Simulated scan of single mutants.
Amino acid sequence: MYGYASPGVLAPAEAEALRKAVAHLLGEPPAEGQPVRASQSEGEVVRWSEGEAVRWMNQQGFTTARGNPWRREVLHRLLTNPRIAGLDSAGEPIEGWGESVLTPDQFRQLNALFVERSGQRAPARDAHEYLATGGCAVCGRCETAMTGARVHSDAPPSYRCPPPTETVPSCGSVRMNADRLEDPVAEQVLAELLKPGAQARLEALQADIEAEAARLRQHIGEADARFASIGDLHGRGLMVESAFLAAQKANKEDLRLSRARLRYLEQMTDLPIGGVHDLVHWWTTAPHASKKALLLLEVEQVRVLPQPEGSNDPHDRIQIVWRQSAA
């Protein structure tokens, strides 16, 4: 759970980031060094929206426990989980929990605030199902993974290079509407599949992906044993506290990255196109998950270039790096 290294044991940087965000959600006076709005006068107390809290978390380079950029619904789900305050589902303190990110009083205040605001929030727009997020589409100027976003609430979905932060030196200057990116990429993917030997190549690619996924599942399955071994060394006095915390942190990060990689690979392993001859028709009727699986299996990377002068052809802005089989 974000904010914790293990149940009742804080991850200090994560916990501090959440506490700063929550302080502003509740309208508490900002402590020294905490962020303020550009328009906020000295001493003025302003309650942030969840959107402002999410933007600040992303600008500071904080990512979710799965390594993804923060979204409003993800932060909301985390802050409405009673364990963030060391409480059980009935709102009672968990025995032996240790430290908690929030106090029970802060947790109750937050829930009251969310209930109050729920009646004020406009109905959410249907989310666009992006085909090339998660590291597939990258900025052609700085190589940073592009994220799915809307410029404003009424704008069409688009891919954008995220603004730079202390930990992500992105350029933040390249953006492309989702339909202008995804449709040309789909055209090129389908064209590749019409070439001789395409089915055999797909099968080889899938075999590579399944082999890597199997290795990751084994590695993830052995995580508890690794954590137990670290805890045993620490409990027997063979590992100082600082080394214990550093080892826990490193193993937690390794587990997070392994799980994220496995989720990415698993999107490619269930692709029901065997025997499909009319691929264009299949593409227009296939579920989103199957189309994304096919794209990720065929494509290693989609580089999105800045708008070239004098051209409005989306193909001029797209460079595809095709995935190669290890065979």
Rank of each mutant, 00 (worst) to 15 (best):
G231N: 14
H234Q: 10
A246D: 14
E222C: 02
G221P: 01
A246V: 05
G231A: 07
K249I: 02
F227N: 02
L245M: 13
G221E: 04
K252E: 12
D224L: 08
A247V: 07
M239L: 15
I220V: 14
R215D: 14
S229H: 12
L233N: 13
I209N: 12
I230G: 04
S242G: 03
N251E: 15
L205Y: 06
S229F: 06
K252W: 01
A246L: 14
L233G: 15
G235H: 13
Q248A: 06
G231V: 03
A204H: 05
A198N: 09
A200I: 06
I209V: 15
I209R: 14
D224K: 12
G237I: 08
L245H: 06
A214E: 05
K252D: 13
D232T: 13
G197C: 08
A198G: 09
G237D: 10
V240D: 09
Q206S: 14
Q218R: 08
E212L: 05
K252S: 12
A211L: 08
A200V: 12
L233W: 06
F244V: 10
Q248T: 06
N251H: 11
A250Y: 02
Q248E: 07
L238V: 01
A198K: 08
D224E: 13
G221W: 06
L202Q: 13
G237A: 04
A204G: 03
A207L: 14
A223K: 01
A204P: 00
F244W: 15
G237S: 05
A223Q: 09
E210T: 14
R236Y: 08
A200L: 09
A250W: 03
D208V: 05
L245Y: 02
L216G: 07
I209C: 12
F244M: 10
Q248D: 03
E253R: 07
L205C: 08
A213T: 02
A213G: 01
R226Q: 09
Q218C: 00
R215E: 13
I220H: 08
L245V: 09
A198P: 10
V240S: 02
A247P: 04
I220M: 12
L205R: 07
R201H: 07
E210L: 14
L216V: 08
N251L: 13
K249H: 10
S242D: 14
A213I: 00
D208M: 06
L205Q: 08
F227A: 04
D224N: 10
A214Y: 00
A207Y: 12
G221S: 02
R226G: 00
A246Y: 03
D224F: 04
R201C: 00
I209M: 12
A204T: 01
L233P: 01
E210K: 13
E203R: 07
V240Y: 01
A246I: 07
L233C: 10
G231W: 06
A207W: 12
E222D: 07
G197P: 08
E253K: 07
E241V: 15
L202A: 11
A213C: 02
E253C: 00
G197I: 11
D232L: 13
F244L: 11
D232M: 11
D208Q: 04
K252T: 12
A213D: 00
V240P: 00
